[in-house]
């Protein structure tokens, strides 16, 4: 697979079809990877592809406005690109999406339950050899953690989250790794008005984490980067998965499935369920 990725990157750069290819390269420790920004065909050999390619590369695309970018995109990266296109943050004609089929590489825990290993949007799809195309993960397990939480009483859940959020150090790593957190000025940093406390009090922490989850409703593509980046181990994916489940059940909406779909919260349909309005 990696040979094909390198070959494609080389081709794109050599033919000046793109100004840069964003992929993964080995980091100094010799094991993990870091994002690679390659602007010369000679450098494509530094690209790697293995189970350490965790980062959501969609996060970097907004950094190069007006440039033509080739990007290596896993299933979740591609979904993030779809949302960014939906939200007018990227221009499709400036992107060359090198879709890579993943899943078998078992990048992280969440990949085991990922039903969508193939890029939702791509210009070329590079497949894992000897693997049945698009063999999905076990979707049944996707909401197991959420359902376990739902089964508990409200007070219990509140207690649980208070405990989790009390550890938050407001480093905003979750925000920085999230491709959807692209606001010019995050509500957490605004002062007029100050939406919630900036101190690491439980109150402010609670408001921050819940606000971020709400702001991701109908947008989160479950790349899991926030949870991976969180230094204190808050299970942020559980929050996002809950809202993902709600969006799916209430509005049959799945983030990142179509560029043409109207963003969930910006659209209204007269058939939308109303029974939850009391």
């Amino acid at each position: 697979m990696i040979e094909e990725i390198r070959q494609k990157a080389k081709e794109l750069l050599a033919a000046s079809k793109v100004d840069m290819v964003i992929g993964y390269r080995r980091s100094g420790d010799g094991v993990s990877t870091v994002p690679a920004f390659i602007d010369s065909a000679q450098d494509v050999d530094s690209l790697v592809w293995d189970q350490n390619c965790v980062y959501n590369l969609a996060n970097y695309l907004r950094e190069f406005p007006g440039k033509k970018i080739g990007v290596v995109a896993k299933g979740c990266d591609a979904r993030a690109i779809v949302v960014l296109l939906q939200e007018n943050q990227l221009e499709r004609e400036n992107l060359f999406i090198i879709g890579v089929e993943c899943g078998v590489t078992d990048i992280s825990e969440k990949c085991a339950a990922c039903p969508r290993t193939v890029s939702a949007i791509c210009d070329i799809l590079i497949k894992e050899k000897g693997r049945k195309s698009g063999a999905p993960g076990n979707e049944k397990d996707a909401y197991a953690a959420v359902e376990a939480l739902e089964a508990r009483r409200a007070e219990e859940r509140l207690g649980l989250w208070r405990e989790e959020f009390s550890r938050c150090i407001r480093c905003y790593a979750c925000r920085q790794v999230c491709p959807m957190c692209y606001c010019p000025k995050c509500v957490a940093d605004q002062t007029m008005p100050a939406w919630f406390s900036k101190a690491t009090s439980l109150e402010g922490n609670f408001a921050w984490n819940v606000t971020r989850a709400f702001h991701l409703a109908g947008r989160c593509v479950d790349c899991g980067e926030c949870e991976r980046a969180c230094p204190v181990g808050i299970p942020l994916r559980d929050l996002n998965k809950k809202l993902e489940k709600e969006a799916k059940e209430l509005y049959k909406y799945e983030a990142g499935s179509s560029v043409e779909a109207k963003p969930l919260f910006a659209s209204y349909d007269k058939d939308d369920p109303k029974d939850f309005i009391k």
């Binding site: 939200e87 007018n88 943050q89 606001c183 010019p184 000025k185 963003p263 919260f265 659209s267």
Partner: peptide, 21 residues
């Protein structure tokens, strides 16, 4: 303008078509 990311959410949500990009 300093805060607007141009995501078009308001543009789509406006029932009066009162928003332009």
């Amino acid at each position: 303008n300093d805060l607007c990311s141009g995501c078009k959410a308001c543009y789509l949500a406006c029932p009066y078509s009162a928003i332009e990009m």
